[in-house]
Write a protein that binds this DNA or RNA. Structure first.
Lengths: 333, 333
DNA sequence: TTGAAAGCGGTACCAA
DNA sequence: TTGGTACCGCTTTCAA
């Protein structure tokens, strides 16, 4: 009713109920036994339409009830899956989720960590950072708990959830080899991005080990874009590549398109494997074999680590390694 | 360095600089002219590593610097596009974005609006609500500005951004008719969801007008799921449907799969149109014709409306209608 | 110009 | 058990 008047505060409730604000606070937080008083307060609360201010409570408790999660790009399937899984956990634990889109700008990371000093969230999950020393130091000095999802090898004082991108590439290469591919190519993303570089390195390593490495069959794109992948794939197909690893599912899709444009069949003439095991892979025609990097699992773990730490669990730094697994579908049979 | 000691507050700066906290506040906010004092404060700030507490400032200013955006499902391409577009605007305007995933539970909407009374955000964008009277009243009574993205026809006192789902279906049907389809089918989502119902209604209306409506060629799924779509599509294909509207791009993809499974060619034997114009449509094989409902545009508009209102612009309630447009690709040629 | 003090909306301590 | 009060960290009014 009183939508014109400004919000009711605890004072209004106290006045209305004829008690002190301390009593109101206690009654509302179950710290009093006097049923009659509790009842009076409840009536007053209804009457003045009182809702406790999050701000007031936060200032007092020094907790905001919010957790931030920073991802380079929400539109990216694997970050999205992580985000969704983490948000679910946060929500169940009573935390709101604040989304930070870093836009892949690696320099933003440092600013985000520094921004934590403003104390606007109780914790942070940050993904895919470039593990610079400077950044690690800043995280270690941070007062609010931070969980990093990415690839950090060194021993650090915070929780880390990571996956083995190199193994992902290895799984893909071995699968292609076992399917009889002779010339195996890679369409990968930029080497100055974490996923771009690690997948590339894994590919080179595995392909070399199996004696199928040929630098000419590797295309490193300027960006993880479908169109760039399409052009690169056409070229490699012309060179006779018969087994492809796409650095992401989207890039794998570009290979499917290029094969089709070339009048070649997947998987009869060309076999294709993607990375991320996103919805796009499941729904592609033909259905795309893909390496699942456990994005959902990583999001869940990171969120659980953080929530546990926020619950006062002051354990030693935890490290979780989610192992990739291959999901074989039509495109590589 | 002093990462063990708790954060420095304005008091620490004041002590260090040998001035009052008021002076520190003024110096930091450019409300003083004394250069010497400003300099002293700055040095002290550096020394004690002071960062103003967002909480303290918020309590004082009654503004949190945060905006919430509620979507039924982030994994859904169109909500994701909206979210991303809105987040971009918020970020530029200096607001953080808090994500609320309603999980499609329509009853959550009311709780979200009510939760605003806790004042943990400065504004809210809420999408795809079922426009119940109760909810509208609650929004109108809300102290924090709310922008609704959805389909509300009545005159309300808040900003609304909507699209015409019926026209979307109409565009699709007319296109299929113009391409020579004789038996036109729909694979749609549940009628108790806003997108499910409006798209269905638009389809019926347009198909009837063009004399191609046949109830037997309409499949209403229990859920917007690919697998359900696949089964339904197989059945309709068996019935000889030669032109399909998928209620979403994902459902359209299920039609592509079903056609392929039936050994029929898209678009030679069967033509398919989806709705959302998501990335999945662009990357499908064959590339999928789809109706673009302007998710990005809607997200942008909603965010702009909200930011403008938060900037103190107390204009009359605004209504924006984003018109759908068809993006013709291979699947319907 | 500067500092003291009130106030934002709560919680928690301490006496009564 | 209850009420008074200090306090969380900051901004802003009011006197000096």
């Amino acid at each position: 009713m009183s939508n014109r008047a400004s919000r009711a505060t605890i004072k209004d409730v106290a006045r209305e109920a004829g008690v002190s604000i301390s009593s109101v606070s206690r009654a509302l937080n179950g710290l009093t036994a006097n049923q009659e008083l509790i009842q009076r307060v409840k009536v007053a609360v209804e009457l003045v339409e009182y809702v406790p201010s999050q701000l007031g409570q936060s200032l007092q408790s020094q907790r905001t009830g919010q957790i931030a999660i920073a991802v380079p790009d929400i539109a990216n399937a694997s970050y999205l899956a992580m985000l969704k899984a983490a948000q679910q956990i946060f929500s169940e634990a009573g935390y709101r989720t604040t989304l930070i889109n870093t836009g892949g700008d690696l320099n933003d990371d440092l600013e985000i960590i520094k921004g934590l000093r403003q104390k606007y969230v109780d914790g942070l999950i940050i993904t895919s950072i470039r593990p610079r020393t400077e950044l690690i130091e800043e995280i270690e000095a941070s007062e609010v708990p931070v969980v990093v999802v990415g690839t950090i090898i060194e021993a650090v004082s915070f929780d880390v959830v990571s996956t083995d991108s190199r193994e992902a590439a290895r799984l893909a290469v071995e699968h292609l080899v076992s399917q009889g591919c002779k010339k195996i190519g890679l369409i990968g993303g930029p080497l100055d991005t974490v996923p771009g570089r690690t997948r590339y390195e894994g590919f080179v390593e595995a392909a070399t080990r199996h004696g199928v490495f040929d630098e000419n069959n590797v295309a490193i794109l300027k960006d993880f874009q479908f169109d760039l992948g399409l052009v690169a794939a056409k070229k490699l197909i012309d060179q006779g590549v018969d087994g492809f690893l796409g650095g992401t599912d989207i890039l794998a899709l570009s290979i499917l398109h290029a094969s089709r444009d070339a009048g070649l069949s997947v998987p009869l003439n060309i076999r294709v494997v993607g990375i991320d095991n996103s919805e796009a892979a499941r729904l592609a025609i033909p259905r795309l074999t893909s390496i699942d990097l456990g994005a959902i699992e990583r999001g869940r773990l990171a969120a659980e680590f953080l929530v546990s730490r926020l619950s006062g669990f002051d354990s030693a730094p935890k490290v979780a390694l989610v192992r990739p697994r291959i999901v074989v579908r039509e495109s590589s049979l």
